[in-house]
Design a protein around this nucleic acid. Structure first.
Length: 271
DNA sequence: CACCATGTTCCTTG
DNA sequence: CCAAGGAACATGGT
């Protein structure tokens, strides 16, 4: 459940549940997700710490904690990879098969589970510093967008996944944004002029914003970690619709592979 | 068995 | 040094 909108919805859900809660102990079931932090480091740093803030940056969750002893706040960075989830469970509840890190909060436990263990839960904030502008802020606009691509000839779809260009767009919303902007995913970024950049930037903002709004209706799914996240309740126009008629022009949605990842587009609407 | 999957990083090649 | 492409990571669903 991992692109920007899903992470934003999760952050809004977790924020009131975590702020003010104190961590008693931390158990690490899969140390790989902590890298480069060690299990011992994480346990020592978090024991007795209290959640103060929770923010989102791109697809990352940024937890700020206060340690009982000390002055400087502690930053914990979470990323859900492809299959990560975070939620609270009652203290006695049994853990899921792929629980990676569990924090004992007293009457509850804060669980990070991740089937494929591609995600991260770490004290290292390095990857965050490499992120490009937030698409839902005004630091993101068509000009910074176009300027960042000056020397590239890659396909625009591939570039949209580059987190140093825009933070938070993933494989699903890249297809959706290009569909909305009417731009062919294979178009070289060198051949995109200002009007197209403007349409694309606007489309990215709209698509992500709408997904957040729609994700807001399925918040309850995060609470118990059961069943589906509600992710695919967001209505998608292109992604996953190969062979189905385009809602705008009726031609069949096609699938192609770029840099090893599926792209869905309408050959009629996207040039 | 084959292929697909919401992501990032590392390695190789040019 | 840079850009670009592909494999690796790990598990499960169809």
């Amino acid at each position: 459940m991992p692109e920007l909108p899903e992470v934003e919805v999760l952050a809004r859900h977790l924020r009131p549940l975590l702020i003010g809660k104190k961590i008693r102990t931390v158990s690490v079931h899969r140390a790989r997700v902590l890298e480069p932090t060690s299990a011992a480091q994480l346990k020592r740093a978090l024991r007795g710490a209290t959640f103060r803030k929770l923010a989102r940056r791109g697809k990352y969750l940024v937890f700020e904690l206060k340690r009982a002893s000390a002055r400087s706040p502690l930053t914990l960075v979470g990323h859900l990879g492809m299959t990560g989830r975070m939620y609270l469970l009652p203290r006695a509840a049994s853990l899921p098969k792929h629980a990676a890190v569990v924090m004992d909060l007293g009457r509850e436990q804060f669980v990070y589970e991740d089937t494929r263990y591609f995600g991260r839960f770490t004290l290292n904030a390095n990857s965050i510093s490499q992120l490009g502008p937030e698409p839902l802020n005004d630091e993101f606009n068509p000009k910074t967008f176009a300027a960042a691509l000056a020397r590239s000839r890659q396909a625009i779809k591939t570039k949209l996944l580059d987190q140093s260009l825009v933070a938070g767009v993933g494989n699903i919303y890249a297809s959706e944004s290009l569909y909305r902007a009417g731009i062919h995913p294979s178009r070289s970024v060198a051949r995109i002029g200002l009007p197209r950049w403007q349409r694309l930037a606007a489309a990215v903002v709209e698509v992500l914003g709408e997904a957040i709004t729609q994700g807001g209706t399925t918040l309850n799914d995060f609470a118990d970690g059961e069943g589906n996240s509600g992710y695919f309740q967001v209505s998608l126009s292109a992604y996953g619709r190969e062979g189905e008629p385009c809602a705008r022009c009726g031609r069949e949605i096609r699938r192609l592979v770029q840099s090893g990842r599926s792209t869905f587009y309408c050959p009629g609407c996207q040039r």
